[in-house]
Design a protein around this nucleic acid. Structure first.
Length: 932
RNA sequence: GGGUGCUUAGCUCAGCUGGGAGAGCGUCGCCCUUACAAGGCGAGGGUCGGGGGUUCAAGUCCCUCAGCACCCACCA
């Protein structure tokens, strides 16, 4: 083995080995365990969120596979309708073309070409992460099979009346020319104005003042509303106003919606361009006048003068014209929530169009079930309430309830080209027919070929197909074996940001079509942010690419990557400066295992994770530590008798101790993974490996293996333990760090008597064999060694210089322990000699440490600086005194001794007694040295 | 306007059902001891955001205030 750990030398080799040999496929034995990957955008590339998310999933999958479950991790990608279409449109735009220049068919061909070209990117990157996905089952949301499922669901929902088409006010993106769902609209507070306009009464007797943040919509006003109780306006209800600039007579209506306290108490009503006004329009039967084109320009329903003007140009003109007419009362500054499309950032316009919806609000249908329940959302709510689906952490359940309880119908049609075509056809009279195909439609409705049918030009919301993912990927509507075996899946691992987009919808669709939940648990993790808690974004220039962390990247490439293609090129300088400052040497290659270990160690539940480069560097070092520990083990065991073929074997205290400690670590890791506490699992592995196996056990093995005095049985026992514990440790760490563990295991496994092609199919370690006696005695040995080391360090004595040790105040047990473990102590404490102070003899002047009640003395002759030892003792004494004071006060308090549990009181007593004894000894020692 | 989460060592974070404040990185000192200098040994560093309460005992439970972050919501 090389002296230093080099991830590149091993990672890709092992991944290919696993994949080529089918090790990712379900074993077909054991309890089913299944995770569906949240399908990434097919033409996308891996970001830190994916890295984290997939590390968690792969850890779970590898753990369960090793536990013997029939484990499937289902891979696949999403066609990501709008996102992908926009990428290809941008490519076209670079050639000066639009999608309309190509036409629908050619354009879609282009998108497929783009998918073919870049579609392998993200799956390659997922492989780099070590993700043990069963690629033989990879799916794509626009595969034939999945498309069938989409059609089937659409048709069935439509047949039940749960999908309908209608003219409704929807969120319209004037750049994309499509409707989007509520979720795709991000509202943010922006500074704007409140314009106050006078609307004259038709009879000329005065005017009302209305306030608006959107003057241009006044062209579509069809009423002004006041509160029915408002004494100021009560008498005007039923009269009409003349809408300025337009000349239309519009009524003054009464509606509770109006808050008399706000603004003027008069609200202009534009039913076609505002969601509240739309509801009022419905209640009062008002005309709905759409004044915008699809680009949000004034259409032919507006006065001639404004037609063709962009909404904001029209706004300026209208305000100007009203001012000229002296109808502008005032303009106030006003903060308002501005809705923007999450893809385009353009201001979303409420817009009246024909769209398809999934009915999520209707009271229960007439098909026999009791009334008062929403057909789709209620079962989805019940599934979580009843505990059939559990959220981890549980507080997300409230978010889920709140959202589903207040949900609106889901607009599922999109006026774009890339996606699942809506399976609906129109005849020339505009009648609509829904079916799985045109042929089926003609058959079912008796439409001959003399009738021309045209398919609906819209496509479905991407999330419609994603909602079916847990069963469509397994073959539904076919009742496949995979579907029977793996549905419901075990757990969904995802970020909170798509609970609504995806999680809730999968639950609704799964219950509707599979009659069972899609997953039993939902593990919700946080966002990956930069080291200072800032969201990573291109525009901030603080994005880290997981592949760069694995492979490393030089500074110039990193700067180039961060500063090209910026929306605001003026930021480039600042970003470059910050990047050069933060990564003066670029980013070194940390390797996949270090990256995964970092994600795991940061994965505490319920909070975002701040990705600190210091952490990954530390864990890269940890990989190196494990690597070198393995090197040491192999040096001492390969080609030697490790007891695999029998032979007498004697286990030392150290051997028994490390086995016991391993059992505890295994217990912790098992518990942690089962509780989704990957941070605790990582910590347990780290601490066991470094602080116990390496720092103590490997050192303790040296005196046994190198000593001529040690018997063959003892050496065999130690070699056996070295190898066995390392082999078990590799299995324990494998789910988090698959590559390095596999690489080492291939050489260590056989020495431990293991057979098998790969570590990933070996059993996960169970916790057994804790040995309290060995741990207690080992603690004694360690205290003794540390005591000597502290004296050494405090006295500035070279680590290599052998020291004579005298033990005083010892018990018979101390004597026995020392005799059993002399070689360990001699080696690790670097002692020249260890002697018992004979009864009645005076100890020489010494530096002191305590092991329980026993004094460890290092004679001062020529070694020890009096002042330094006084200072050292003084510090120990101060520390003890402070602690002792607290303890004695506690025990002196009758409230404590009466009310606290006996065990707690007893423990405190023992602690105080021990501290008192230690304090006495240190003080006595201090006096002796002072007298020198 | 509702809701959630966070505030612990210089930095990034653990601390589970209340009972002697922890890790990594960074800092300081001594060491190239033949697994590892991406290392070894040792050290320093925190009135656990402020205030109040419950309790024998509070980082941990309750109330309150402050700051930060996020989610939801139709106030023109």
């Amino acid at each position: 083995m090389d002296k230093a750990y080099d991830p590149h030398a091993i990672e890709q080799r092992w991944y290919a080995f696993w994949e080529d040999n089918g090790h990712f496929a379900p074993s077909g034995e054991g309890a089913p365990y299944c995770i569906m990957i949240p399908p990434p955008n097919v033409t996308g590339s891996l970001h830190m969120g994916h890295g984290f998310n997939n590390t968690v999933m792969d850890t779970l999958i590898r753990y369960h596979r090793m536990k013997g479950d029939n484990t499937l991790w289902q891979p696949g990608t999403d066609h990501a309708g709008i996102a992908t279409q926009m990428v290809v449109e941008r490519q076209l735009a670079a050639q000066g073309k639009s999608r309309h220049d190509l036409g629908r068919e050619k354009f879609i061909e282009r998108v497929w070409e783009w998918k073919a070209e870049s579609g392998g990117n993200i799956t390659r990157q997922l492989r780099r992460l070590g993700s043990s996905l069963d690629w033989s089952r990879e799916r794509f949301t626009m595969d034939e099979g999945l498309s069938e499922a989409v059609k089937e669901v659409f048709v069935r929902l439509h047949e039940e009346g749960l999908i309908y088409r209608g003219k409704r006010l929807v969120n319209w993106d004037p750049v994309l020319h499509t409707a989007v769902s509520d979720l795709e609209v991000i509202s943010e507070e922006e500074q704007g104005y409140m314009w106050h306009f006078r609307y004259p009464l038709s009879d000329g007797s005065g005017h009302l003042v209305v306030a608006t943040t959107r003057p241009e919509t006044m062209l579509g006003d069809t009423a002004v509303a006041v509160n029915p109780e408002d004494e100021r306006y009560k008498h005007l209800i039923g009269q009409t106003l003349t809408l300025p600039l337009v000349g239309r007579e519009i009524p003054i209506i009464a509606d509770d919606y109006v808050d008399p306290e706000f603004g003027t108490g008069c609200v202009k009503i534009t039913p076609a361009h505002d969601f509240n006004d739309y509801q009022i329009g419905l209640r009062h039967n008002l005309p709905m006048i759409n004044v915008f084109t699809v680009d949000a320009k004034i259409n032919d329903n507006g006065p001639e003068k404004y037609r063709g003007l962009d909404r904001y140009e029209a706004r300026d003109e209208i305000v100007h014209d009203l001012r000229e007419l002296e109808l502008l009362e005032k303009i106030d500054d006003h903060k308002l929530m501005v809705p923007r499309g999450d893809r385009t950032g353009s201001v979303i316009e409420p817009y009246l169009t024909d769209q398809w919806f999934v009915d999520l609000t209707r009271e229960r249908l007439e098909d026999g079930r009791p009334g008062g329940k929403a057909a789709i959302t209620d079962p989805a709510l019940d599934a979580v309430r009843s505990g059939k689906i559990k959220f981890v952490p549980g507080n997300w359940e409230n978010t889920y309830y709140h959202w589903l309880g207040n949900i609106q119908d889901w607009c599922i049609s999109r006026q774009i080209w890339w996606g699942h075509r809506i399976p609906a056809w129109y005849d020339e009279a505009g009648n609509v027919y829904v079916g799985r195909s045109e042929v089926e439609v003609r058959e079912r409705h008796g439409l001959g070929f003399d009738v021309t049918l045209t398919q609906d030009s819209d496509v479905l919301d991407t999330w419609f197909s994603s909602a079916l993912w847990p069963f469509s990927t397994l073959g539904w509507p076919e009742q496949t074996d995979a579907l029977k075996a793996f549905y419901p899946t075990s757990v969904l691992v995802t970020g909170f940001d798509i609970i609504f987009f995806w999680v809730a919808r999968m639950i609704m669709m799964g219950l509707k079509f599979m009659d069972d939940v899609p997953f039993r648990e939902v593990y919700i993790h946080g966002l990956v942010r930069d080291a200072h808690g800032q969201k990573m974004s291109k525009s901030k220039g603080n994005v880290l690419d997981p592949i760069d962390l694995i492979d490393g990247i030089d500074l110039e490439s990193l700067v180039a990557k961060r500063t090209t293609g910026l929306m605001q090129p003026e930021m480039a300088k600042k970003i470059e400066k910050a990047t050069r400052k933060e990564f003066p040497e670029g980013i070194p290659a940390f390797g996949t295992d270090a990256l995964r270990f970092t994600f795991a160690s940061l994965a505490s539940t319920g909070r975002d994770i701040n990705f600190d480069l210091g952490r990954i560097e530390g864990y890269r070092n940890f990989c190196n530590k494990l690597w070198n520990a393995a090197r040491y083990v192999l040096m001492n065991t390969e080609g030697k008798d490790c007891g695999q073929q029998g032979g007498e074997m004697e286990l030392s205290l150290a051997d028994r101790w490390i086995r016991s400690r391993f059992a505890r670590a295994a217990q912790e890791v098992n518990d942690a993974i089962q509780g989704y506490r990957f941070d605790l699992a990582a910590q347990a592995i780290y601490e066991f490996t470094w602080n116990e196996y390496c720092d103590w056990y490997l050192e303790l093995s040296k005196p046994v293996l190198t000593s001529e005095a040690a018997s063959e049985a003892q050496k065999r026992g130690t070699r056996h333990t070295l190898v066995q514990v390392l082999e078990s440790l590799l299995r324990l760490a494998h789910p988090i760090m698959p590559y390095i563990t596999e690489e080492i295991w291939q050489r260590v496994g056989p020495l431990a008597g293991k057979e098998g092609a790969t570590l990933m199919r070996q059993p996960f370690p169970e916790a057994h064999g804790a040995d309290a006696a060995a741990e207690a005695e080992m603690q004694w040995v360690m205290d003794l060694i540390v005591g000597v080391r502290k004296i050494r360090s405090g006295m500035n004595i070279a680590p290599g210089k052998p020291l004579p040790i005298i033990l005083d105040g010892y018990s018979a047990e101390d004597q026995a322990r020392l005799e059993r473990n002399r070689p360990f102590i001699r080696f690790l404490a670097r002692t020249e000699s260890i002697e018992w102070l004979a009864a009645g003899t005076e100890a020489p002047e010494s530096a002191t440490a305590l092991v329980g009640a026993m004094k460890v003395l290092v004679p001062m002759a020529g070694l020890i600086d009096k002042e330094a030892e006084l200072a050292r003792l003084g510090k120990e004494i101060d520390k003890l005194k402070k602690e002792l004071e607290r303890g004695t006060a506690k025990l002196a308090n009758p409230a404590f001794t009466d009310k606290a549990p006996a065990a707690v009181v007893e423990k405190e007593r023992a602690r105080v007694a021990e501290m008192q004894s230690a304090l006495g000894k240190f003080e006595e020692q201090l006096e002796r040295i002072r007298r020198l």
